[in-house]
Design a protein around this nucleic acid. Structure first.
Lengths: 342, 342
DNA sequence: TTGAATTACTAAATCGTTTTAGCAAAAATA
DNA sequence: TATTTTTGCTAAAACGATTTAGTAATTCAA
């Protein structure tokens, strides 16, 4: 029950495996293999159910037709949708994807990059965790194509696809202001990542442009591995009546924060949008069916994934493009629902 | 800038690559390589940043340390969480995972299985779509380990991990009955899959055991690729006042159905649980923050994933176990929230 | 009719490992 | 001292493909 190899077909027909290889790679014409033999090879290869050994091919050609993907957590629908799109677009061109969840942990991502290197992947799509600059720099200097998604490191010259986070947060905050909110908080994570940083900067700028002073105490920065409790604590500080930080609106920088936040707000017996208005980044199902459906900054996840694969494959196929770095910044859209009042 | 190979290290030290291979595989003792040389090899391998070429290893040893995963859709949090667990457990033992989303499409899954075969994966974890019996049977007869998850085909002898869907649906339905509901509907998909079939059977049995006649018109079976509209239509038929199918509770067999269902119910201006009670399979975030948090059948996703990997790796390491088929059926738990009244 | 060109193929090297078989020198034994 | 055993290592085959360089047989041109 061993798998059939090129050689098996060759022996079966009394020809060389060179010939078989030529024919099966569609190079029969090019190498002047007779029609007759071509047909026989094809027939026998079908008869013996020949499946090329991609590992052997990979060793010989140096191309594995595999790309390595590192994201924070495939269980998070944000990355799930992104991963799905990447898998799908890659499959279109005959590429497989090895998925890795880094949990925003640079040590894990280091190990994963090493593993992917050893696996001889043809390219990387990475959403790099904080403190992984060195790994990314090293990769970017190598000669294997690399595309960063969702975030990047400003000081590293490297392809990346992101959204205009500043603009998105600016518009989201502005929306809250237009809806009459005066005191707006921002709950966020990990300010060391550019994307999060830009969100908070956009929020601040919107306030300033409306002549509102930015109060640092209204910006709650939670550790990445935040528990429900921590969000609850932050929310509590921002919404309780006699807190001096009492606000009338919150901008959540991620949906994980937002979902936990809504839970906390409900638990405190407060109503959205009457007691507090909210806007959140990302657009999970949860926001469509909760008490008041949430106004969100929707990211073009499919486009991010698709573009990342296209740029990556472009570079894989034309390594000479390697010098041309592509920095793509996509637009988000603000989906207005009921969580900011009307 | 070429990668360093075993041979590079060998040349660098003036020894054979055989020796280098022995040392780096920790077989220095076994093959009586002198301490001194061992140290040098290790040092040079570190100095040249040697990374083993897993492709070459794979070709030589026939083991790629890679497992192939086929699920319906990685963007669906149900499979996202499952996939995450599988990735994590596999990584613990040095295995990589190639992810494939089949969209419940047997033609896609066929292609994906073929791709994974060519990639020489060491084992498969598959959530097989309907009409993929032949593919699965063929795989099961081969000598590459295989574990099915979430569903299986009763007529195919093969490892599988599922939950007790019959029991889960039975208990969920019973809960609705205990909460005083008299007329209970079931909205489901794809009855051809055992898991879905068992859910509906559990639902029916619970009704019968309570002396309630099963009405086929209250069981709505939607196509897999159901749109929001179709769910809306089913819901509408079940909840509108003068419909002869008017019910006071619905059991949703998947969370995708449930989420769409809740949206439809809200759109009709009805209140959960006052106008209609609901229970759903699966436990997405959405159910925690919606108008009335939803009572759910929670599946032990982490355990399913972990067990699947353990059984698979067990078989990979001890191919003699191949004959011993493992059928694991895990328990679900019913998480009671507010959607059934109190 | 000879030399060149074309046709239809094949041998062998190669990719980077692992692993079997074996070899020379030193040490131990008789 | 001669033989055996042990020590410390290496050569070479193998995995399954691709690809370069070539070759024998035929056809063509002059």
């Amino acid at each position: 029950m061993k798998k059939t190899s090129l050689n098996d077909i060759a022996l079966h027909l009394g020809v060389s495996k060179t010939l078989v290889s030529f024919v099966l790679n569609g190079k029969g014409k090019e190498f002047r293999i007779s029609e007759e033999i071509c047909k026989k090879v094809l027939a026998v290869s079908k008869e013996l159910n020949y499946q090329p050994n991609r590992i052997a091919q990979g060793l010989r050609t140096g191309k594995t037709n595999t790309i390595g993907l590192i994201i924070a957590d495939i269980a998070n629908p944000f990355f799930g949708i992104l991963g799905r799109e990447i898998e799908q677009e890659a499959a279109k061109f005959g590429y497989r994807v090895i998925f890795c969840s880094s949990d925003e942990n640079p040590e894990k991502s280091r190990q994963q990059i090493e593993m992917l290197q050893q696996s001889q992947v043809d390219g990387y799509i990475i959403s790099p965790p904080k403190d992984s600059e060195d790994q990314i720099r090293a990769l970017a200097l190598g000669n294997v194509p690399l595309v960063l998604i969702d975030r990047y490191f400003p000081e590293i010259e490297c392809n990346h696809i992101t959204v205009d986070n500043f603009d998105a947060a600016y518009r989201a905050t502005n929306h809250l202001l237009r809806m009459g909110r005066k005191r707006i908080a921002n709950i966020t994570v990990n300010l060391d990542l550019v994307n999060m940083h830009q969100r908070t900067e956009g929020y601040k700028q919107a306030l300033r442009d409306s002549g509102i002073r930015v109060e640092e105490s209204l910006i709650k920065v939670l550790p990445f591995s935040h528990e429900n409790k921590e969000v609850a604590k932050a929310v509590k500080d921002l919404v309780t009546k006699n807190s001096q930080n009492k606000v009338d609106a919150i901008l959540f920088s991620t949906s994980k924060l937002g979902i936990n936040g809504i839970e906390s707000i409900s638990a405190l017996g407060l109503k959205i949008p009457d007691d507090i208005a909210i806007v959140s980044f990302d657009n999970p199902d949860a926001y469509k069916i909760c008490v008041s459906p949430v106004t969100v900054v929707n990211q073009p996840l499919k486009e991010i994934g698709k573009t990342a694969v296209q740029i990556l494959l472009g570079e894989i196929k034309h390594p000479d493009n390697h010098a041309k770095i592509q920095k793509v910044i996509l637009k988000t859209d603000l989906i207005i629902r009921k969580s900011c009042g009307s």
